[in-house]
Amino acid sequence: MKIYVWRCLSLAIGLVAFGAVVVYAAEVEKYFDRHGTLIVQEKVEKYKRRADEGTTYPVPPPPFSEDIFPCSDCHADMEPNPQRRELVDMHEDIVLNHAEGQRWCLDCHNLDDRDTLRLISGEVIPFTESYRLCGQCHGDKLRDWKVGVHGKRTGFWNGEKQYLLCAHCHNPHSPSFKPLQPMPAPVRPENLDRQGSQAAPTHN
């Protein structure tokens, strides 16, 4: 049953241009090869807040919980503590369940400026570009995300689009997608009141 559709497709619609997407992908692909290995090291550069923050890919606001951002509201006056430890005074609800053996908060968060993230290369990025952080280890997903195949773009199919951040669907600290309650099942044919005149159909 799992038949690949090349033949049928090209027959029906006359598509050819196989190379095009590869070229296109190569155009937007700046940091990773197709196996997700980092191939271009970026210059280490302190992130400066710009008016056009996060323009690389238009995204909706990051899904912070209320009153947590800017982090500097608290952290500006705090002594940064790079020590790996159990947090007790704050963020004790954050439980790392994401390759946690090898990881600590500051692999992702920027010790010197908590309002930003920090890549392995040392480059500092805003939260609106957190997909680049994830892409360091999930290069295949980032590549699909950029073309709208992993994750989701909203807006217009033939116009402006927004990209949901990885963090809109995955909690960075515990990223497996959380199960959902399904919406009601359809009415079984034997219970379907075709005239629609009687009492509510039973869902089961």
């Binding site: 799992k2 559709v5 095009a20 997407v21 296109y24 992908a25 073309v147 773009r153």
Partner: peptide, 15 residues
Amino acid sequence: PKSEIRYLIENKRVF
């Protein structure tokens, strides 16, 4: 050729 539908048809396992 730049659409997401073309990308997935050309790069993914499709049926």
